[in-house]
Design a protein around this nucleic acid. Sequence first.
DNA 1: GGGAGCAGCG
DNA 2: CGCTGCTCCC
Lengths: 260, 260
Amino acid sequence: MKIVSWNINSVRFRLEIVERFLREAAPDILCLQETKVIDQDFPQEAFRRLGYKTIILHGQKMHHGVAILSRVPLAEDDRFDWQANREARHVGVKLANGVRLENVYVPAGGDVPDREVNAKFGQKLDFVERMTAWSASLDCPTILVGDFNIAPLESDVWNHKQLLNVVSHTPIEVDALNRLKDSNSWVDLGRHFYPAPARLHTWWSYRSPDWTVNDRGRRLDHMWATADVAAAATSHTVFEACRNWLKPSDHVPIMTEFDL
Amino acid sequence: MKIVSWNINSVRFRLEIVERFLREAAPDILCLQETKVIDQDFPQEAFRRLGYKTIILHGQKMHHGVAILSRVPLAEDDRFDWQANREARHVGVKLANGVRLENVYVPAGGDVPDREVNAKFGQKLDFVERMTAWSASLDCPTILVGDFNIAPLESDVWNHKQLLNVVSHTPIEVDALNRLKDSNSWVDLGRHFYPAPARLHTWWSYRSPDWTVNDRGRRLDHMWATADVAAAATSHTVFEACRNWLKPSDHVPIMTEFDL
DNA sequence: GGGAGCAGCG
DNA sequence: CGCTGCTCCC
């Protein structure tokens, strides 16, 4: 069972590279974030043609939006709105084997890492805190994936010291993410297979065109699993090459294979 | 000597099809309208690579904009602003043999064919009137090309009766264009080679996707020459096929070959 | 229908 | 940098 998470930064604008990725990596399930499309305009046909006939959507106009596409059966889909602000940032399903798969797009948090002067930073911290309460209450083997917009470890960013005050790597965000992680038996699958201090990045800003030269990446995308499910994980792949495809997302897909 | 006129509807967005056209039709001179780019952003390099090393520009931000690209020498370029409103609608040059080439983009004229309720319609009529005064004063063998935004003859439109009150084919516009034509020894080269009532169209609206089925075209683009130059014209071609190319302009290129 | 610029967001 | 959706224009 191969499960992928990818912040696609508009699924309509990026349709060709998603199709290419599905043909090449052939995951069973694809979790997307930042689809940026309302459900009725989601390009379902393209995915159906490639065998992904189960399509679970939680989209909205313009921003955010998540989706789960699958070629295996899914059930019990739900959509949480932890902040009750109608932002489409979560969609979850249950796999046939009873494992739940939760797909989340954590708020980016704005530019200034201070909740007094930047409401978006506060919203991000609140979001993770509410996720933490939810996580603590889970009673089911679970895989949690998505764009968490936080790079917790020193080796998750291209330069730890230079990013200590940059949103995504500030101690306050890292602490919040660690509390989320400690709220259940979560295993960070990326670091399970590539322990720190190995370099592990999933995002490179559009703003440095020579991203491959400077390699100023961050690990913003994550796949976690409760210990029971994590024990079945057999490999993890970060598809860095996708950052160089035509019209790329600034995020690359990450995939975990499970012996489920 | 092969001279082409083409309303390209953004030369930057349409660069690939212009390059393809130049490779296939290989004109000596290409007159463009609606380049939609300021001179400093004009994609000169692409044209230089194809041998069009003489590039005469009259562009502006956002709208309008004309250009003459040539692989033969040009001189004495000028830019008229008949309405003194800073709209970039004309650029002219002199060929080595002394013939002048004038490239014009006549205002479209808005939707309502009434100068009292639609100032743009008045602007269009005024523009043609001022061109007429200019035309009457010419003392040089001249080729006049461009998007005139008027289809004068019944066979210049897909349905004469249905367009009698549609801007581009109203009697008041046709009268104005006929006065322009009569102000000098102009020969309408399109009709010289394909006399009415032959169907002759150069524009098909984007709004009817099945343009090729309904064929609701109009002849808005023209090449005229004073009688002395017209006598040297040997053929005229309307490149209808370009309307089916990828990311097409709504206008197609027209070409006259001269034995000059 | 489909260009261009712009604001908003990341 | 670059995506969406808006307005303007043809």
